[in-house]
Amino acid sequence: MTSIQVRPAGPGDHADLAALHEREWGGPHVVVHDTRYDLRELPALVAVDGAGGFAGALVHRLADGGLEVVSLAATTPGNGAGSALLAAAEAVATAAGADRLWLVTTNDNLRALRFYQRRGLRIVAVDAGAVDRARTVKPTIPYLGEDDIPLHDELRLERRFPAPAAGS
């Protein structure tokens, strides 16, 4: 496996980010928990491989005492970029004084559910019908998701951080 490094996105990453978001989400807009986000307007972390090649990205926002992962995608699954990006996002969260990292995925995304749970995130809520509502804002959301599973619901996952030690 190639060594993965993570850094904040810079102006030179715009084309790679745009291509990744087009591939993953059909463009720069995502609709999650009844909110439409433009991924170009939020902070991003990028993963690069040992040769300096673009390996993935995580777009996030700090709000409500936590860091929300709005988008996470690797150029090649299994290359270590997702794990490295998630660890870097936790570092951003703790540096900002946040006590949790959280995100939303869909009921069909079994690969993501496995990935996140293996990294300590827990399912804390299910919003039945959230994807159905999101289609009114973004009609290109498919009705069938991965493995031909009907796409209807959002699952919220989170991991809480231990409180910093006194005096640190």
Rank of each mutant, 00 (worst) to 15 (best):
V46I: 04
V46G: 05
D64K: 13
L42H: 11
A44H: 09
F54Q: 04
G65W: 00
T35G: 02
G65Y: 03
R36T: 10
L45K: 06
A47L: 12
H60Y: 15
A51I: 10
V30A: 02
A57C: 15
A47W: 01
F54A: 07
D49R: 11
A63F: 01
G65N: 09
D49P: 13
A57M: 08
E41A: 15
L62T: 01
R40T: 14
G53D: 14
L62P: 04
V32E: 05
A44G: 12
D64H: 15
R40E: 08
D64V: 10
A51W: 03
V32S: 14
V32T: 13
A57L: 05
D49H: 12
L58Q: 09
G65A: 02
A47C: 10
R61G: 11
D34Y: 03
L62Q: 00
A51R: 13
L62V: 07
A51V: 07
P43D: 02
G52D: 10
L39V: 09
L62W: 01
A51Y: 08
V59R: 09
D38W: 09
D49T: 11
F54V: 02
A44S: 15
R61N: 02
D34M: 05
H33R: 09
R61V: 02
V48N: 00
A51Q: 15
A47N: 03
V30P: 05
R36K: 11
V48P: 00
Y37N: 03
H60G: 04
A63I: 02
A63E: 12
A47G: 07
Y37W: 14
P43V: 01
D64C: 10
D38A: 12
V59H: 13
R40L: 02
E41G: 12
G50K: 14
R36S: 13
A55P: 03
V59L: 09
L39Y: 03
D38S: 13
L58W: 00
L58D: 03
G52A: 13
L39M: 07
L45N: 09
V48K: 00
R61K: 13
R61T: 07
G65D: 01
G53Y: 00
R40S: 09
A55Y: 10
A47P: 03
R61L: 08
